[in-house]
């Protein structure tokens, strides 16, 4: 499972950087959005594989809730990610707002042209 997650992190991050290097502000926003997925997956990989080793079939460990099972997964990465999800959502909302405002005030959403443009202050 760790290998799968690592590949997912690699692919998502590659796409994210590819989008961020693009010219469209919307692409950049999507890149930022994807970045959080890559980060979360890489953090949850720290809790090791959820597959019970040596067990019959493909049994999974239990959720980190007392009384659910004898071998729960590590709870700490989950707690960290939960905080992170909320924060990345907040950042995403703010970023989208900024993009909307930029779209209203600027003549273009091209990153290169925006760098040269003198935007009126709100």
């Amino acid at each position: 499972m760790t290998l799968i997650l690592a590949v997912c992190v690699a692919v998502i991050l590659a796409v994210c950087i590819y989008l961020m290097l693009g010219r469209e502000l919307k692409e950049v926003a999507m890149g930022v959005f994807l970045l959080s997925h890559a980060a979360h997956l890489s953090i949850i990989a720290m809790s090791r594989s959820p597959v019970l080793s040596g067990a019959e079939g493909h049994d999974l460990k239990s959720a980190p809730i007392l009384g659910m099972g004898s071998q729960p997964v590590d709870a700490l990465p989950q707690a960290l990610i939960l905080t992170s999800i909320v924060i990345s959502f907040a950042v995403m909302g703010f970023l989208l707002t900024l993009i909307v405002l930029t779209g209203r005030r600027a003549t273009t959403l091209n990153v290169d042209d925006l760098a040269k443009e003198q935007l009126p202050t709100p």
Partner: peptide, 19 residues
């Protein structure tokens, strides 16, 4: 593509290492 792939591989490898 080159830069993105390099970043992806780096981060993926670091995930693998850490896990």
């Amino acid at each position: 593509i080159a830069i993105s792939a390099a970043v992806g591989i780096t981060m993926g490898w670091m995930t693998l290492l850490a896990a």
